[in-house]
């Protein structure tokens, strides 16, 4: 085996061992993470259609608007979207070009 494959194997075993050490915590975290990523996919599909405000996005994705805003904040922080003008009292957000349509 190459050294890289060697370390890949090592990592696999380590992760397995740690999962066995704290199964409930890891399982709960995984469930939460999967749900959050599912929501994120829906939001991205919606935003790929064009810029949207938080309430518009929330109603299109059937989400509480506070939750939609949290996702907007997260995506903004990691460079996945930017502000794109305003619609009345609300900001419009759009995906950053290289992120559009991905995932």
């Amino acid at each position: 085996m190459s050294p890289a494959a060697d370390s890949r194997q090592e990592l696999k075993e380590l992760l397995k061992r740690l999962r066995a050490e704290r199964p409930t915590i890891v399982e709960a975290a995984t469930t939460r993470s999967n749900a959050q990523r599912a929501t994120r996919r829906v939001i991205k599909i919606e935003l790929a259609k064009g810029p949207a405000t938080v309430p518009a996005l929330a109603s299109a994705c059937s989400l509480p608007s506070a939750d939609a805003l949290w996702h907007i904040a997260a995506m903004r922080k990691y460079g996945e979207l930017v502000e794109n003008g305003q619609d009345g009292d609300y900001c419009l957000y759009r995906l950053t070009p290289n992120d559009e349509g991905s995932d």
Partner: peptide, 16 residues
Amino acid sequence: GPYGRVIRPSDGKIPE
């Protein structure tokens, strides 16, 4: 800051 501006946490409205 989390939103880059002051908006309401409930729905992103710019407060009046």
